[in-house]
Design a protein around this nucleic acid. Structure first.
Lengths: 335, 335
DNA sequence: TTGTAAGCGTTATCAC
DNA sequence: GTGATAACGCTTACAA
């Protein structure tokens, strides 16, 4: 491998000058600079970032540790992060923890060992283990998507209650009378927040929530299916349902289809979270979408700030969701 | 930051001994080893991989540069790579080139600068530019998914012709009489290979292909929709169609739905490539699936071999596809 | 078995 | 503005 010494010799300058030309942040005689550039080209010189990182004791790599590469939530999030990173001269590498705590810990410690400039993590668990290890190692960290219990860390989340309230309000305004809610497990903070939004919308409309219409399921497709089935089995079944995540929405849809129930005529439905390839689904779905790109961008900005000022106190940014209305909740046809 | 010198002092040994304990590949007195381990724990020492990499002039990171993080093809592929990597002590970082040649080049050069141990790349283009830069820098490289024109590089692909033939044969055997084909653009090698498989299956069944029934589209959803529409407009339309990639399959499905055509009763359909969340689509789809996990594993193994023997001549591995039969092609109900 | 010391390829601090 | 030169933190001959 060629080094800056080889380049220096070829260009007839000192290695220090080569370094200065390569980095650009010190003025060097244009003639010499030209010779250096020619030499690097001739030798096909590639600067060794490992040595550079060691000497500068910092790197230009961000790690983004995501819990599930299949979740469409992360696709545009990563783009948001990348755009901020690139503008600031960083590169982004993705680590897929696959909801696996061991993998997540391995990637976190790789990021520390490699002295990466920062880490953006969507924690596989709400337990703070890995994040606190990163924090203990003085790693700049930003948490996304989920809250970390008791950890002092910059984080970006969405306003779950507000999104749920908007979805529920929409169903009520369109004319549905008995709006049910299928939310997640009790232990998940997001499930509680979304349920609270559902309730808030009812209060705001001067309606009371029939406790019969609320189901806690497991955030998975099967749970959504079963919760929907149990709602249909009620003496007085709902005529609409707000489902608090994407997988359960899929399950609820499958259930309604299996029962031959017309959407949105008999039952209207709004989901939380985007569903990939949603355009394939008929009727098109109404969903609460998360501003994934913005989440990524915001996380990137927070990380930049944390890198610049390691001691500033951590902040949490809450972003708004957006209701995207499809055919699944448009019972009242436009005139 | 603490270094092995701090640990050495605390444990009352030399830095070399600390290093030996950390790496394990040299016998050291258990008493000393214990003191070292205690010291590392007490100081919360984290070994600096940057310095280590520099000294050893090699790293333990693989870069996987993928062209589209949204494509489900890559999800399990990445797992295949990771499993091989992990078993050999490597970590995998993902770089999302987003079908963007600039991004791809940036990530390739980051991988070179960081002296990563190897690169697995699904080239955004069949032009060999970035791959040849990696090869020129003596980077161990494995190409996946697409062929690289004229580059001598290890690669893993699937047998497109065989998969297409199997899909077509299935449609013929189930009883469809006029099987059409929507394939990709002429320039794409994969499109040609899949078309050839379609033709081969006809010949094998003693049938001739009606050229009217073959369409070249753009591998995108809209193209699939339009190709399907033009097939339906024929005086004698097909009663089945083999579609050569997932996006076009989605388009063709949408077209059939819009025309109110019953699947599989009036027209049967088989696609190539998996479709995410396919379980949501009714009827369930018949598709030619790629052994994505195996592709990843194989790429990992090839990379290992290339790292071990940089001068061995490049090899190409072709894997078989598998036909997954759903309801979209099962016209003849089981007795 | 353990310690000493020389690098790995850069960048940054000095003198000039 | 440019050139020596000393780190950065680790691994690994080599010596003890």
């Amino acid at each position: 491998m060629t080094t800056i010494y080889d380049v220096a010799k070829q260009a007839g300058v000192s290695p220090a000058t080569v370094s200065r030309v390569l980095n650009g942040h010190a003025r060097v005689n244009p003639t010499l600079a030209g010779r250096v550039n020619r030499a690097t080209a001739e030798l096909g010189f590639q600067r060794n970032a490992v040595a550079r990182n060691l000497r500068r004791s910092r790197t230009s790599l961000w790690a983004v540790i995501i819990s599930d590469i299949e979740n469409p939530f992360f696709t545009s999030l990563v783009r948001g992060v990348e755009d901020v990173a690139q503008a600031a001269g960083y590169s982004v590498v993705l680590c897929n923890s696959d909801e696996n705590l061991k993998k997540e810990a391995d990637y976190a410690s790789a990021a520390m060992a490699e002295r990466m400039a920062g880490v953006i993590i969507s924690p596989a668990s709400e337990r703070s283990s890995d994040v606190s290890a990163l924090l203990a190692a003085k790693m700049p960290v930003v948490a996304i998507d989920r809250a970390i219990r008791g950890a002092q860390v910059d984080s970006v989340r969405v306003d779950n209650a507000q999104g749920a309230a908007e979805a529920t309000k929409h169903l009520i305004e369109v004319g549905y009378q008995r709006v049910a809610c299928i939310t997640g497990p009790q232990r998940a903070t997001t499930a509680g927040q979304r349920l609270r939004g559902y309730e808030r919308a009812h209060r705001a409309a001067g309606l009371s929530v029939d406790p019969e219409l609320v189901r806690h399921a497991d955030f998975r497709q099967k749970g959504g299916y079963e919760a929907m089935a149990s709602l249909l089995a009620l003496p007085e079944p709902p005529d609409a349902v707000f489902v608090a995540n994407n997988l359960m929405t899929v399950g609820a849809l499958a259930c309604l289809t299996d029962h031959g129930i017309a959407i949105p005529e008999v039952i209207g439905i709004v989901g939380f979270d985007d569903i990939p390839w949603a355009q394939l689904i008929r009727p098109t779905l109404s969903v609460v979408t998360q501003p994934t790109y913005d989440v990524g961008q915001t996380a990137g900005h927070l990380l930049m700030q944390r890198i610049a000022q390691p001691s500033r106190s951590p902040s949490t940014v809450i972003l708004s969701t957006r209701l995207s209305v499809g055919h699944s909740s448009t019972r009242a046809a436009a005139p």
